[in-house]
Design a protein around this nucleic acid. Structure first.
Lengths: 257, 257
DNA sequence: CGTTCTATTGACATCATTCAACGCCGGTGG
DNA sequence: CCACCGGCGTTGAATGATGTCAATAGAACG
């Protein structure tokens, strides 16, 4: 659903990764040759856990989930991706992908081969900075998530999840108040570490309280204030912080800054 | 306690970061001028959340914890560091430290200024690769931790924590069977997201079952097999994986590989 | 040596999972 | 076009794991 609202220029130079590079390009230093965009459909896989690490990707439209499966087939979702997000950083650790990536809806990605990436990293200080920043941000995001699982109740975690999504949509110029969930409740439950039933019940509860309105996959945030309040219930000073820190859910997004 | 066992040469060129560089140095390409080592004592702070990001550090001896505090003074520990670990990557996101770092015992660190680091990043492909690998590894480590909090019971989490520590000590050439905890139960509880009382009870339980032996801070793993079994109880195929994936608890360790 | 931090243990409360039944929707084939 | 079916989602009731509260004791530190 994101794809409709966001108008991409057809040239890949307008991807966020290359936007980092454009400032250099104006210096005449840099040439990134992205591979052509490629379209994937719901349920299709970009790469699988264990497969060789050959490229980095930027999601241009649609959405995806990263997950690793624990051989019994059980999967743990580690994050969701939205347009502009950089995908594939997991490959650097062992030159092999550490998790699998699957699309939640029809999506398009562009890619850059590792070799070219490495080459460019050597040439562009701006790219280096961007990548370090991006990875650092990803680490902090994971820690935030860890924090929220450790310290929050299920209700707070769900509230945070919704607010995070809202922020991510807003950053992309979409509505932060009304949006669709491209993932199933099962995915949400898996990601947040709770039972599907709990998700269901809590969404119901929030709806009854008039804080949100849920129609199938469509979410309408009627009262972001109160949703945010639940995160800081007894901690007034904490409120401001949360508002700042709320942008995660993997997000290795590069620019848009 | 780690400091006694590990004999560091007095020159900083033997730090793990520079060991990454030495291969290049033999090519005559690289010159890293680390600042002199500095000693810190228990409770002292290397840097605080929000302070300007000016350097990266490598822990040479001792141990430390990273945590961010939530203004009400409540802290969330995001990881523990041991000798060889690279510290400070959190600064890249906002040019400001995202969490605070405090030493758990007398420790020594060496540092490298960001400017010098950035310069070297431009010159050394090996360093770039190491850093990307290191950060990628850190991200995956966080995700592993997230997974364990999401899917494991308290007992499993504690078991995993002990095994992780054991592995980290072993990687450093120390005993993986007998070691001291440099952090308090409070820290452990905070990190693992459970109550101190639960830690206490579970340690007691494991001791009664003859799996471990606890004397104050000293831990003795009497039966690593069974400790590991509890992680995979009903999942035979999963066992092998866990063994591999078990090295985390922040660990942005660079080389030793 | 006393104050404070750390750790242990017991009794109780509670939030979230589990188990189970059911409804809804979309797809597919008769 | 309708009927069936499977995945997704909702709801209820019971169970259990873990947190909270409280009391106590030992270590660490000045």
């Amino acid at each position: 659903m994101l794809s409709q609202n966001r108008q991409h220029n057809s040239q890949c130079e307008h991807c966020t990764l290359s936007s980092a590079c454009q400032s250099e390009r104006s210096n005449g230093e840099l040439q990134l040759n992205h591979m052509p965009h490629r379209i994937y459909h719901r349920g299709e896989t970009l790469y699988s856990m264990g497969s060789p690490f050959s490229a980095l990707y930027i999601l241009r439209s649609g959405s995806a989930k990263a997950y690793f499966s624990s051989y019994s087939g059980e999967e743990q979702i580690s994050g969701f991706y939205y347009p502009g997000d950089l995908i594939g950083l997991d490959g650097f650790d062992a030159d092999t992908h550490a998790y699998s990536l699957k699309f939640l809806e029809t999506s398009s990605v562009c890619s850059i081969g590792v070799d070219e990436f490495n080459k460019t990293m050597g040439e562009s200080a701006v790219l280096r900075k961007q990548i370090l920043k991006s990875m650092s941000h990803a680490i902090l995001g994971e820690q935030q998530q860890l924090f929220s699982v450790n310290k929050y109740t299920s209700e707070q975690r769900l509230a945070k999840f919704l607010l995070d999504l809202s922020n991510r949509f807003q950053q992309r110029g979409l509505s932060g108040k009304v949006f669709d969930l491209s993932m199933t409740r099962i995915d949400i439950a898996n990601f947040l570490g709770m039972a599907i039933e709990t998700i269901s019940r809590l969404l119901g509860k929030l709806q009854q309280e008039g804080i949100i309105d849920v129609q199938r996959r469509q979410i309408r945030l009627l009262n972001k204030e109160r949703l945010n309040d639940s995160l800081v219930a007894d901690e007034p000073a904490f409120k401001a912080v949360m508002h700042r820190a709320t942008s995660r859910q993997h997000s290795s997004q590069l620019s848009y800054a």
